[in-house]
Design a protein around this nucleic acid. Structure first.
Lengths: 203, 203
DNA sequence: ATTTAGTTTAACCAATTAGTTTAACCAATT
DNA sequence: AATTGGTTAAACTAATTGGTTAAACTAAAT
């Protein structure tokens, strides 16, 4: 018992639950397995989080928070539009690459459980106002080609997230299952994807 | 009993199973619910497909085939590169938009079941050779900016699929939960996404 | 020394679920 | 009329699983 008893147990449970839920989804996750991963037993698990539902709710919110707020922080900054795109693409690809299963987990749960989880957006303030404004200004100032701000935002995010969540398909199909080649591609994207976007819009 | 008895039962089961599996995933799907959806009873369901595993295998393969081969057919054609991109983007967005849950389903199952399903790629011949060649030629001929063919292919596919699978996030966050606005965006993309890509690469 | 919060062990309950079995039914075939 | 293949209904098995309970143990705090 080197452990300081309780202290981090709640946290250990949460981390174990995150792993299990992200890997197997709500339906596929097992409370026993979460307990195992946390190095505790089932009774204690229920002692901390009364039910699977409750625990899942906490995990989902936490996981969602882990990837969503980055939007605001970078997008609301006062950088130049092009630099902001470069900055965001690089940072966001790094973030997602470090936790590649999260987006699929979130999308799958939202997809198979429409409604119930939509509250999760409520508390998160994803704010694109400054970025939208910047895009509009750049369009009107003739710096970039006409584009609906929302469309550009969607393009940027698509190019960051999809190549990472589609790894199980991309790696075998395009890179003969060679992880190095795949990782090189992701590294490349941190700069290349941004330039791709900028080339697409600059007039 | 207007039905011609057996004949289409196997097909009805398959369709019901597709719905259930795509919606709930392998772990969340229920054999009883599949039987209900097919309008038959559980005994008959097992009579046709011995086990859930077997049924899932058939469904997964079939679902995967439904969205993968389009790659080859369009990408191997002898169209001009830019037209091919326009053609593919429009067709593929339409296809995915008509069955928006499939990509998330596939990615989720591949993600939570690495290995076991990788055989599914085997039989499918996704062939990008002609497209890669075309891109290389266009780069060497100076028609487009230098780019690794694989990178461009990934960009194209990302811009088609992601905006559709991320609908549960995009619609509330960017369009105040208004489906019309969302659908307009998807319609717009059928042409705009292609032009975005072409602008990004043409020199 | 006693209390207390955290923890374990192990048994247990109730519900769900994949899969099986049996008997009967129906419609077309022979 | 008898056979046959598809089908149903319903009961059942066996395993899994979420959740509970009760008793005992441990270490720190009082």
């Amino acid at each position: 018992m080197v452990e300081k008893k309780n202290s981090s147990t709640e946290q250990k449970i949460l981390e174990a639950a995150m792993l299990e839920f992200i890997e197997k989804g709500m339906a596929g996750a097992r409370m026993q397995e979460i307990a195992n991963r946390a190095g505790i037993n089932k009774a204690l698990l229920h002692y901390y989080y009364r039910s699977k539902d409750k625990l899942f709710g906490v995990v989902f919110r936490q996981v969602f928070h882990a990837i969503a707020p980055k939007f605001s922080t970078i997008f609301q900054s006062e950088e130049d539009l092009f630099d902001k795109i470069r900055h965001f693409v690089s940072e966001y690809i790094s973030l997602i690459h470090s936790t590649p299963h999260i987006p699929v987990f979130v999308l799958h749960e939202l997809s198979s459980n429409p409604g119930r989880l939509s509250e999760s957006f409520m508390d998160i303030s994803i704010n694109f106002d400054r970025l939208k404004q910047q895009i509009d200004e750049a369009v009107e100032g003739g710096r970039i080609k006409p584009i609906v701000p929302e469309d550009l935002i969607i393009n940027i995010i698509s190019l960051c997230i999809f190549p990472i969540i589609a790894r199980p398909i991309i790696m075998p199909v395009l890179y003969e299952d060679n992880p190095d080649q795949y990782n090189q591609m992701i590294e490349r994207r941190k700069t290349q994807a941004a330039e791709f976007i900028i080339n697409a819009i600059k007039s």
